[in-house]
Amino acid sequence: ATNSLTIPAADRTHSTTNNNKSASAANRKEVLNFKVTNDANSYYDMNTLVFKAGATEGWDIAFDSHKLFSLVKTAPQLWTVSKNQQFSTKCLPEITTAYDVPLDFRAGVNTVYHLSVTGVNSFENTSLVLEDLQTGQKIDLSQQDSYDFSATTDDDESRFVLHINGVTAVPSMDEADGIQIFAYGKTVCLHAPGQKRLKGKVSVFNTLGQEIYTGRLNGMKSQKISLNRKTGIYFIRVEDGNKLVTRKVFIK
């Protein structure tokens, strides 16, 4: 014979609480992963930001990792700053208000860098805008998960700030069209994000309005134009049908 316990149907009760769902919500983490690569070598660096209950802005021994800088001088370095400390992984409190998180960067070589971001879809009803303090560009991470920029080893390391629920990225004409245009040394770089390709005509003008270069875009994701011109400000214009994009760059 086996032992058994029978509960009459009239005495059975059922909780309306979904315990699994409640536990999941309580343990829910919002995570951003940053990765920076470059055109000059195969070195890269990564940084992780986590927002969760129980974390603080200071060093949490259970969650955080301080930044350990690479001994390879030509490798890029990326780190979060909180309470005057440098982190490769930083857990911050749950997002309940607007605040800014500094994301510092050190170039290993003078070249073009590519910053990619994953994990944005782990956030709900949260505005995440990454600002490049050197160029002034603001990137809405819900619309764009990568960003190309030029950097030198002499640049200020306070390069980026992540604005959380505080800044709206109002796109300029080129950002609205999805085209990134910037200069590195005497080279103009154009990049189409996502699955887009560069199309149309590109022209370069000096500050007197004189056209010093014109050509067709190559139909690829990126294109570089070398300008053997003196140091100064130039204007890059891209025309594709009825779309017109203009961007000011500085040629060194």
Rank of each mutant, 00 (worst) to 15 (best):
L5E: 08
T13P: 00
T13W: 09
N19H: 06
N20F: 01
A23S: 05
N33W: 01
D39N: 14
D39V: 09
N47V: 01
V50P: 00
A55E: 10
E57V: 09
F69P: 01
T74H: 04
P76H: 01
W79L: 10
T80D: 03
N84V: 04
T89W: 04
C91G: 11
I95K: 07
T96L: 08
Y99V: 06
R106W: 06
G108C: 09
T111D: 15
L115D: 02
S116H: 02
V117S: 06
S122T: 15
F123M: 03
V129Y: 08
V129E: 10
L130N: 06
K138A: 11
D140E: 10
L141A: 03
S142C: 00
S146M: 07
S146E: 14
D155E: 14
S158P: 03
F160S: 02
L162Q: 11
V170D: 08
D177R: 10
Q180V: 06
I181Q: 10
A183I: 07
V188H: 13
L190A: 12
P193L: 10
K196Q: 12
K201V: 15
K201I: 15
S203K: 13
E211S: 11
G215R: 03
M220Q: 15
M220R: 13
S222Y: 11
R229E: 15
T231A: 15
T231Q: 15
Y234C: 09
Y234A: 10
F235P: 00
I251F: 04
